[in-house]
Design a protein around this nucleic acid. Structure first.
Length: 577
DNA sequence: GCCGTTTTCGGCCCGACTGTTTTCAGTCG
């Protein structure tokens, strides 16, 4: 089994943790963390690069001789001697201590050195016996805080879905705006960057009366406890364990603060290093030349002061956004209003909850101009998959509806046809040939080898009636692990056969990332963002799909269903209809 | 450990808050 980029990244994260506990050079530690991040986001498996030409690793920003060599060792042997060595020196249980809020590498190391603590259990015992408070740099409060935070160690790193965070955000902003003197309130952080999950919330408020805002914040219905409160900054934890940080800033610093707290951390480090090169300093209050503030009121101002165009928050991950900005190639990210069609949805004929008419009506209300009805094929018996007879019956009804909606909505006669375990499609060719829009989908045999699954997908791509491949990246609802598929081959072949790849819009999983987007662009494949709705409300999930697409750096041009109907027809069938 | 419009050495983003201090280190974002 070849090692994945995620596994390599994890290895380097672990190296960083262990080195930090040993008190190693903090820049060396950061370097490992940086390598981990870069490798996690890499468009190509490190294993493939090593197999082709290991020297190419050195071309990647943030990876040097040492990490490149370690990558090679990891790919070839699956192990890393340097890591084993470090592990032998640092007790396993110490790593868990780092997960306790308030405990960092220095304190964890001191606990180990002075009190011989090797695990969370040891630490709890030492705290209860009052031994921790006697250590230099520790005190009664620290000891008490550790005991209180022990249970948090497990639930730390728990992130909530963006959609859930969004609900809290809307309530919180409404609540805060009721405080006197509030001019502006925004949520920054990973929420603003549109990450699929959010670990905490960073709220920014412009106000001349910070203490009034903080009082109001403390009265937010969800507040479980107040963690800290200073002059400009306050932190709380909600009853369900989500941390929310509040900063009150003056109007002239709002842009700088918004930029700073939106992050990402890696993006900000790059930005600051650029400021430094220009003899400028940037912090959450503004951009400074010496003592003089030269920007800060808006984000646009801040970026402009550094010679950069405004970079959309969804792109701020220190991937390629600076390179794009330098070359004037920042994408114009796709917007929800640009989506004109939804090409994957179910009705009560299979496992949907609403009738065909209800779905069509819902689409019209959402200003869609065309949709495809794509119920399941017979193999998905659990969902009452449609056989040819029922399918044709549904299609006759669609013909009628199309007459009724003439000029308002175009309904495509579609089907989500399974790609069978042993290859081939789940419906006869003559039936598929009658459909306007065939989505090919793998639901069964997901545990097959990468090669087998790729082969099945290729067959579907080559099938003359198939238009689009659903979940090409292998991510499906109810499956934690994606199935394995050779993306490179699938993208290339799809492009060659004029087929499309579908990205599902759901609030709780990520089908698409910048890696897939880059592959799509490279091969010239158009992507389809679909909701896979099973109810009228399901159509609203389109906003999550668009958010994913934006994070991946896609513009309207990269997405098939932003096209007006005549252009869509030409791209799909080679003629305008 | 990485990197170079200060290029093979000497730097590496910056500030708030807390607790333990009596001027600051550690942690966090």
């Amino acid at each position: 089994m070849t090692i994945t980029n995620a596994e390599i990244a994890e290895t380097f994260e672990l190296m960083a943790d262990l080195l930090e506990l040993q008190g190693a050079n903090p820049f060396r530690v950061r370097s490992y963390r940086n390598s981990a991040r870069v490798i996690r986001d890499l468009p190509e498996p490190v294993a493939d690069i090593v197999a082709q030409d290991p020297k190419r690793l050195l071309e990647i920003d943030g990876i040097g001789e040492s990490v490149a060599a370690k990558c090679q060792t990891l790919v070839q042997t699956g192990k890393l001697p340097q890591l084993e060595e470090l592990r032998a020196q640092v007790p396993e249980g110490l790593l868990a201590l780092l997960r306790i809020p308030g405990l960092g590498p220095k304190k964890a190391a001191a606990l180990h050195k002075e009190l011989g603590i090797q695990s969370v259990a040891d630490l709890e015992k030492a705290c209860r016996e009052g031994r921790v408070r006697q250590l230099k740099g520790f005190g009664e409060k620290t000891e008490k805080a550790i005991l209180e935070n022990l249970s948090l160690a497990q639930q730390a790193e728990q992130r909530i879905f963006w959609a859930d965070a969004d609900q809290i955000v809307q309530q919180l902003l409404k609540h805060l705006k009721q405080a006197p003197g509030v001019e502006q309130a925004e949520v920054a952080g990973s929420y603003r960057r549109g990450r699929e999950t959010v670990g905490d919330l960073d709220v920014l408020v412009v106000s001349t009366q910070p203490s009034k805002v903080m009082d109001q914040f403390a009265k937010f219905a969800d507040v479980g406890e107040v963690l800290a409160r200073g002059d400009t900054k306050m932190s709380i934890r909600t009853k369900r364990g989500l941390q929310i940080d509040l900063r009150v800033v003056p109007a002239e610093s709002f842009g700088a603060a918004l930029q700073y707290f939106t992050g990402s951390k890696a993006h900000n480090i790059e930005l600051r290093s650029r400021a430094r090169q220009r003899g400028l300093k940037i912090n959450e209050y503004g951009v400074y030349r010496g003592e003089e503030r030269i920007a800060g009121r808006t984000e646009e101002e801040v970026y402009a002061a550094l010679g950069l165009p405004w970079i959309p928050p969804e792109l701020r991950e220190a991937r390629q956004e600076f390179q794009w900005a330098d070359q004037g190639k920042l994408p114009e990210l796709v917007r929800l209003e640009e989506i004109r069609g939804d090409l994957h949805m179910h009705t009560s004929d299979s496992d949907g909850s609403a009738s065909l008419e209800e779905m069509a009506e819902a689409a019209v209300r959402r200003r869609l101009r065309y949709i495809a009805i794509t119920d399941h094929s017979p193999r998905v018996s659990m969902a009452h998959g449609l056989d040819p007879r029922r399918l044709r019956k549904q299609w006759r009804l669609i013909d009628e509806l199309n007459d009724r909606y003439e000029g308002k909505l175009k309904i495509l006669k579609g089907v989500e046809c399974d790609i069978l375990e042993k290859g081939g499609m789940d419906l006869p060719d003559d039936v598929l040939a009658e459909a306007d829009w065939v989505v090919a989908s793998i639901h069964y045999g997901q545990r097959q080898s990468r090669q087998q699954i790729t082969e099945r997908m290729l067959q579907a791509i080559e099938h003359p009636s198939v238009r689009v491949i659903a979940h090409p990246t292998g991510r499906l609802i109810n499956r934690r692990e994606p199935y394995q598929v050779d993306l490179e081959t699938v993208f290339r072949e799809a492009a060659q056969h004029g087929k499309f790849l579908e990205i599902n819009a759901t609030p709780d999983r990520l089908d698409l990332n910048d890696v897939h987007a880059a592959a799509a662009r490279q091969h010239g494949v158009l992507l389809v963002i679909s909701t896979d709705a099973h109810s009228p409300e399901g159509l609203d999930a389109m906003r999550y799909g668009v958010l994913q697409a934006r994070r991946a750096g896609l513009s309207a041009q990269d997405v098939l269903n932003t096209r007006p109907w005549h252009e869509f027809s030409r791209l799909v069938w080679g003629k305008s209809g």
